[in-house]
Design a protein around this nucleic acid. Structure first.
Length: 350
DNA sequence: TCTGGGGTCCTAGGACCC
DNA sequence: TCTGGGGTCCTAGGACCC
């Protein structure tokens, strides 16, 4: 089935949402970042990016790189509200929309006789109704659309066929592809594969030896911009978690338990509000050496009872008994969609 | 320069069952 | 005396994404 997919990517979304409330900051380097000593940058304005400040840059480093930048604490309630406005515009124009996070969405433009003008109209409508700009990429699948939307930011509009994408990015690093991360880039480099063109030209047999029978050939297909994934229109969360990184490491289970209680309380309050329950309760512990450890236990029946979640999480923490200072503690409930999935399977079977 | 918070998916190994 | 093969569930770790 020949498809036309668009990827809509809001430009520096959190910063743009802040600038609407603080227009006097337009044109300045603005950084949305947490305030603690271990905070990282959530979003940087394009002015700040010129100083080498990007998402995930430690805030301390960002301050050094760009001391004149305006630092704003994140206000996710505001970003969520603005995101709903943006997504409403998209839904007004297109039947099939896959929302990805607060600032991205895939659109199925296949039904449009003239998809490009339709996408132009959507781009203008987003700006009219929200005051925010986005970049749009159009292609035959999600991968091409996504890479195209990134190719001409901000306020971009890029249309690519699969062949054009292959040609245009043949000399680019494999890390350009979403799904090929830093670890894989290094492993490819060690094999002398430094470009997408080289990856596309590597045999499945060789890649399977290096990366396994599934991931190996998958990497080559990505490099060829082959992607048959459908849009996922009604995704349900499978897990929900709360975690916190301490300003200074904490030692000993006794000092950690009150924090675990608080996290479990916040998590269960959300689950109860959503009326969702899960069977698997887990903890996450990051030590001072940045090693991350998880422990989990699955129960016969799903729960969102704070007493149950607290009790299980505490047991798991006591059993793990970290022997080094702890920098992060988290609680998680998973298997949230099992009841929903079971019902869906049942409906399919009748 | 040390590295957030909230997620998803994959893999590998062990338990257990038929 | 030596040791099947498949399937499912569960745990832990890791890569990756926004």
């Amino acid at each position: 089935m020949r498809r036309v997919i668009a990827h809509v990517d809001m430009d520096a979304f959190y910063v743009s949402a802040e600038l609407e409330r603080r227009p006097e900051l337009r044109g300045l380097p603005v950084v949305v970042a947490g305030t603690g000593p271990r905070a990282v940058v959530t979003t940087a304005s394009y002015e700040a990016r010129q100083f080498g400040v990007f998402s995930a840059t430690p805030a301390s480093r960002a301050r050094r790189l760009c001391p004149q930048a305006i630092f704003l604490p994140p206000d996710f309630d505001h970003y969520r509200a603005r995101s709903r406005e943006v997504m409403a515009v998209l839904h007004d124009h297109v039947e099939h929309v896959q929302v990805v996070g607060l600032d991205e969405a895939y659109l199925d433009l296949t039904p449009f006789e003239r998809p490009k003008p339709a996408a132009r109209r959507i781009k203008h409508a987003v700006r009219e109704r929200t005051g925010l700009t986005c970049s749009i990429g159009i292609g035959p699948n999600k991968l091409v659309a996504k890479v195209a939307s990134d190719a001409d930011k901000p306020d971009g509009f890029t249309v690519l066929s699969r062949e054009m994408a292959c040609e245009r990015f043949a000399g680019a690093s494999p890390g350009l592809i979403p799904g090929i991360g830093p670890k894989t880039v290094v492993r490819l480099e060690l094999e002398g594969i430094t470009t997408l063109g080289a990856l596309a030209a590597t045999s499945d047999e060789r890649l399977a030896e290096l990366f396994g029978s599934r991931l190996g050939p998958h990497l080559r297909r990505l490099a060829c911009f082959e992607d048959e994934r459908p849009l996922e229109l009604d995704r349900r969360a499978k897990s929900e978690s709360r975690e916190t990184t301490f300003d200074a490491d904490i030692e000993g289970v006794a000092a950690l338990e009150p924090i675990l209680d608080r996290l479990a309380g916040e998590l269960c309050a959300t689950l109860v509000k959503q009326n969702s329950r899960g069977r698997t309760i887990g903890i996450k512990v990051r030590l001072d050496d940045f090693s991350t450890h998880t422990r989990a236990r699955t129960r016969p029946e799903p729960t969102n009872d704070v007493d149950v979640v607290r009790a299980v999480a505490t047991e798991l923490l006591r059993a793990f008994d970290p022997q080094r200072p702890v920098r992060l503690l988290g609680v998680r409930v998973a298997g949230l969609d099992e009841e929903f999935e079971a019902r869906r399977q049942l409906e399919l079977s009748v």
